[in-house]
């Protein structure tokens, strides 16, 4: 009996010690170090324009206007405080109906022929619902529409896309992609500069 009480006492003391160490000291120390050493990423890589936060470089947002490049469809409508996915399986009838509808929309919006191939990510939802990127093809496909809506030459929009290609990291990790928010911010910048 004595043994069990001893065990219980040690267990409680060690549990408290480890809770303090790994549950308070460790995370608070990391918060301090990281906030001082790299304040911007630590606070969410936020983008501030004219003194107000317009979003985070890492978090995708909803774009529907023809004058903006559009990101991926989102199962949670880009709710920054409610990430999530569709979780439709590969033989889901519902998924296929949605995709078919989205393909038609993409083709209609961008004046594509009715059998033009569409990049996968433009019509399939991401895992987080907050994917900030699309593929380079996905961006190029939207260049004519954006250029017309903005009244800028296509070549100019195309150059912007090229400037915003993020390569595979270290040449080997991940795939080439375009950050939609960054690209659209550059578009706005371009228009402001032009007037």
């Amino acid at each position: 009996m004595n043994k069990i009480t001893d065990d219980l006492k040690t267990a409680m003391l060690l549990f408290i010690a480890f809770s303090l160490l790994t549950g308070l000291i460790y995370p608070l120390l990391m918060t301090g170090i990281i906030q001082i050493a790299m304040p911007e990423p630590a606070s969410g890589s936020l983008i501030v324009v004219n003194g107000s936060v317009v979003g985070s470089e890492l978090i995708g947002q909803n774009f529907t206007s023809p004058g903006y490049f559009h990101g991926r469809p989102s199962a949670v409508n880009y709710a920054g405080n409610g990430s999530g996915a569709s979780n439709f399986g590969p033989t889901s009838k519902k998924l296929m109906e949605l995709v078919s509808q989205r393909i038609s929309e993409v083709r209609a919006e961008n004046n594509l022929s009715s059998n033009a191939a569409v990049p996968s990510e433009l019509v399939l939802t991401s895992a987080s619902g907050l994917d900030p990127h699309i593929s380079v093809e996905g961006a190029m496909l939207q260049v004519p529409r954006v250029a017309v809506a903005r009244g800028i030459p296509e070549s100019e929009a195309k150059v912007l896309v090229y400037q915003h290609i993020e390569p595979a990291q270290f040449g080997i990790m991940g795939q080439e992609r375009v950050n939609v928010l960054n690209l659209n911010l550059a578009l706005d910048e371009l228009n402001r500069g032009g007037h």
């Binding site: 990423p41 890589s45 936020l46 979003g55 978090i59 947002q61 909803n62 903006y68 911010l185």
Partner: peptide, 24 residues
């Protein structure tokens, strides 16, 4: 870019005229 902050969630005025609350 992994966040590490004790601050509240951030409200953003998105480009295309919406509001986005971003959890951190």
């Amino acid at each position: 870019g992994v966040v590490q902050t004790l601050g509240p969630y951030v409200n953003a005025q998105t480009l295309d005229g919406g509001v986005q609350t971003i959890a951190v």
